[in-house]
Protein backbone atom coordinates (compact mmCIF):
# COMPACT_ATOMS: atom_id res chain seq x y z
CA UNK A 1 0.00 0.00 0.00
CA UNK A 2 1.39 3.39 -0.88
CA UNK A 3 1.36 6.34 1.43
CA UNK A 4 -1.33 8.28 -0.39
CA UNK A 5 -3.68 5.33 -0.11
CA UNK A 6 -2.88 5.04 3.56
CA UNK A 7 -3.63 8.68 4.16
CA UNK A 8 -6.90 8.51 2.30
CA UNK A 9 -7.85 5.34 4.18
CA UNK A 10 -7.08 7.05 7.48
CA UNK A 11 -9.02 10.09 6.33
CA UNK A 12 -11.95 7.93 5.39
CA UNK A 13 -11.94 6.18 8.79
CA UNK A 14 -11.80 9.52 10.57
CA UNK A 15 -14.62 10.87 8.42
CA UNK A 16 -16.72 7.76 8.95
CA UNK A 17 -16.07 7.82 12.69
CA UNK A 18 -16.83 11.52 12.98
CA UNK A 19 -20.00 11.32 10.94
CA UNK A 20 -21.41 8.18 12.53
CA UNK A 21 -20.59 9.32 16.06
CA UNK A 22 -22.08 12.72 15.32
CA UNK A 23 -25.22 11.06 13.97
CA UNK A 24 -25.39 8.80 17.03
CA UNK A 25 -25.14 11.78 19.35
CA UNK A 26 -27.87 13.58 17.42
CA UNK A 27 -30.03 10.44 17.41
CA UNK A 28 -29.63 10.25 21.19
CA UNK A 29 -30.02 13.92 22.03
CA UNK A 30 -32.80 14.90 19.65
CA UNK A 31 -35.42 12.68 21.35
CA UNK A 32 -34.29 14.01 24.74
CA UNK A 33 -34.62 17.58 23.52
CA UNK A 34 -38.11 16.93 22.18
CA UNK A 35 -39.06 14.99 25.31
CA UNK A 36 -38.12 17.78 27.68
CA UNK A 37 -40.22 20.39 25.86
CA UNK A 38 -43.75 20.25 27.32
CA UNK A 39 -46.19 18.42 25.05
CA UNK A 40 -49.23 20.10 23.50
CA UNK A 41 -51.50 18.80 26.23
CA UNK A 42 -49.63 19.61 29.40
CA UNK A 43 -51.35 17.02 31.56
CA UNK A 44 -53.06 13.70 31.15
CA UNK A 45 -56.66 14.75 30.45
CA UNK A 46 -58.09 12.27 32.89
CA UNK A 47 -59.47 14.27 35.77
CA UNK A 48 -59.68 17.86 34.59
CA UNK A 49 -60.44 19.28 31.17
CA UNK A 50 -61.26 22.53 29.50
CA UNK A 51 -64.78 21.53 28.51
CA UNK A 52 -65.88 24.58 26.58
CA UNK A 53 -66.39 28.33 26.41
CA UNK A 54 -69.11 30.12 28.31
CA UNK A 55 -69.77 32.37 25.29
CA UNK A 56 -70.47 29.32 23.13
CA UNK A 57 -72.97 27.87 25.57
CA UNK A 58 -76.17 29.96 25.62
CA UNK A 59 -78.82 29.29 28.28
CA UNK A 60 -80.98 26.22 27.60
CA UNK A 61 -78.29 24.40 25.66
CA UNK A 62 -75.82 21.58 26.19
CA UNK A 63 -72.50 20.39 24.84
CA UNK A 64 -70.62 17.10 24.82
CA UNK A 65 -66.97 17.24 25.89
CA UNK A 66 -64.48 14.45 26.57
CA UNK A 67 -62.34 13.12 29.39
CA UNK A 68 -59.92 11.27 27.14
CA UNK A 69 -62.28 8.92 25.36
CA UNK A 70 -65.15 9.23 27.83
CA UNK A 71 -67.93 11.71 27.07
CA UNK A 72 -69.23 14.25 29.55
CA UNK A 73 -72.08 16.69 29.07
CA UNK A 74 -72.10 20.39 29.86
CA UNK A 75 -75.51 21.89 30.45
CA UNK A 76 -76.48 25.52 30.77
CA UNK A 77 -79.85 25.91 32.42
CA UNK A 78 -82.51 28.48 31.55
CA UNK A 79 -81.27 30.42 34.54
CA UNK A 80 -77.75 30.50 33.11
CA UNK A 81 -76.18 28.08 35.56
CA UNK A 82 -73.53 25.71 34.14
CA UNK A 83 -73.51 22.07 35.25
CA UNK A 84 -71.53 19.06 34.14
CA UNK A 85 -72.30 15.35 34.27
CA UNK A 86 -70.98 12.11 32.91
CA UNK A 87 -72.28 11.81 29.36
CA UNK A 88 -72.69 8.07 29.54
CA UNK A 89 -76.27 6.87 29.95
CA UNK A 90 -76.51 4.53 32.91
CA UNK A 91 -78.73 2.14 30.96
CA UNK A 92 -76.63 0.87 28.01
CA UNK A 93 -73.72 3.36 27.85
CA UNK A 94 -75.05 5.45 24.99
CA UNK A 95 -74.05 9.12 24.93
CA UNK A 96 -76.76 11.42 26.27
CA UNK A 97 -77.70 14.82 24.83
CA UNK A 98 -79.37 18.02 25.95
CA UNK A 99 -82.88 18.50 24.57
CA UNK A 100 -83.78 22.18 24.51
CA UNK A 101 -87.44 21.30 23.90
CA UNK A 102 -87.61 19.08 27.01
CA UNK A 103 -85.26 21.39 28.91
CA UNK A 104 -83.44 18.40 30.27
CA UNK A 105 -81.00 15.63 29.39
CA UNK A 106 -82.18 12.82 27.15
CA UNK A 107 -80.77 9.57 25.78
CA UNK A 108 -81.81 8.70 22.24
CA UNK A 109 -81.21 4.96 22.55
CA UNK A 110 -84.16 4.03 24.74
CA UNK A 111 -85.75 7.36 25.51
CA UNK A 112 -84.15 7.81 28.91
CA UNK A 113 -84.67 11.14 30.63
CA UNK A 114 -82.53 12.88 33.25
CA UNK A 115 -83.34 16.13 34.99
CA UNK A 116 -80.91 19.02 35.32
CA UNK A 117 -79.45 17.48 38.46
CA UNK A 118 -78.56 14.38 36.43
CA UNK A 119 -81.28 12.37 38.13
CA UNK A 120 -82.97 9.65 36.07
CA UNK A 121 -86.61 10.70 35.87
CA UNK A 122 -88.10 8.60 33.11
CA UNK A 123 -87.38 5.56 31.00
CA UNK A 124 -84.94 2.71 31.58
CA UNK A 125 -81.88 4.42 33.14
CA UNK A 126 -81.37 2.80 36.54
CA UNK A 127 -79.13 5.44 38.10
CA UNK A 128 -78.45 9.19 37.95
CA UNK A 129 -75.57 10.53 35.89
CA UNK A 130 -72.39 11.19 37.83
CA UNK A 131 -72.03 14.89 38.66
CA UNK A 132 -68.78 16.72 37.95
CA UNK A 133 -67.40 19.91 39.42
CA UNK A 134 -67.52 23.00 37.23
CA UNK A 135 -65.12 25.93 37.49
CA UNK A 136 -65.47 28.98 35.32
CA UNK A 137 -62.37 31.08 34.75
CA UNK A 138 -63.17 34.04 32.54
CA UNK A 139 -64.78 32.48 29.49
CA UNK A 140 -63.32 29.01 30.07
CA UNK A 141 -65.35 26.22 31.60
CA UNK A 142 -63.22 23.66 33.42
CA UNK A 143 -64.68 20.37 34.54
CA UNK A 144 -63.12 18.22 37.25
CA UNK A 145 -64.23 14.70 38.02
CA UNK A 146 -63.79 12.83 41.25
CA UNK A 147 -63.75 16.15 43.13
Amino acid sequence: MDTGNKISRKGFINWLLGTSLGATVVAALYPVFRYVLPPEVAEAPTNRVLAGKLSELPPNSGKIFRFGAKPGILVRTQGGEVRAFSGICTHLNCTVQYRADFQHIWCACHNGHYDLQGKNIQGPPPRPLETYKVDIVGDDIYVTRGA
Binding site: I13, L16, L17, S20, L21, A23, T24, A27
Partner: peptide, 11 residues
Amino acid sequence: VILLAVVALGL
Protein backbone atom coordinates in the same frame (compact mmCIF):
# COMPACT_ATOMS: atom_id res chain seq x y z
CA VAL B 1 -25.93 4.46 12.40
CA ILE B 2 -24.75 3.12 15.76
CA LEU B 3 -23.42 -0.08 14.22
CA LEU B 4 -21.59 2.04 11.67
CA ALA B 5 -20.01 3.98 14.52
CA VAL B 6 -18.98 0.68 16.12
CA VAL B 7 -17.33 -0.45 12.89
CA ALA B 8 -15.62 2.91 12.40
CA LEU B 9 -14.34 2.85 15.95
CA GLY B 10 -13.07 -0.70 15.45
CA LEU B 11 -11.22 0.35 12.32
